[in-house]
Amino acid sequence: MSGRHLTEDEVVNRVFPSEEGPAPIPIHQAVCPECQARVAKLREAFLLDRGAVTGVVESLPGDFWTAQRRAVMRRVSELAAVEAEEKATPFPARFTRSILHRPALAFGSLAAAIALVAGLTVLRGGPEAGPAPGAAIVTAAPVNGSAGLSASDRADDELLRSVDSVLSSEASHEALLPEAMR
């Protein structure tokens, strides 16, 4: 006997080679009836299965293929008709029709729009709810007790105070303007 018996991997590779073309037969397999039988058993099982699969396809009657072909072509014709119609229909009409054909989409869009408007209204607090957020920040800014603030914050405070004082003394400045400009 020449060499060792084939390993399990070698038996599988004899039947299911991952490379193309015929693989060389190991010398051992050529002379070892046991290894030949192992390879033959697996190959027979596979060929049996492959033959059965081919048998299924070849035994199908002509009517089966005709029916399958007709079914495909019917679907193709329907899709082609829809596509042709879509090409012939201008965009707004197509959009309106798609909305009308999908009531769930139409109601969903409406509900989403209402929810968005309601949400924005609540967030803004309504038109009469109070001063604008920007104004609130200015009035809430601490004027006194700025000891704990940084230098830049203190500078900002000073600037705000001087703006306030300019605005409050605006009436006296008006007195300086010529008559015609008042």
């Binding site: 060929l47 049996l48 033959g51 059965a52 048998g55 299924v56 070849e58 035994s59 199908l60 089966f64």
Partner: peptide, 16 residues
């Protein structure tokens, strides 16, 4: 199931 004739299509031409 197919071997037992359970397929709605014609039975496979089994090589056996």
């Amino acid at each position: 199931a197919e071997d037992a004739g359970g397929n709605e299509l014609p039975r496979a031409a089994d090589p056996t």
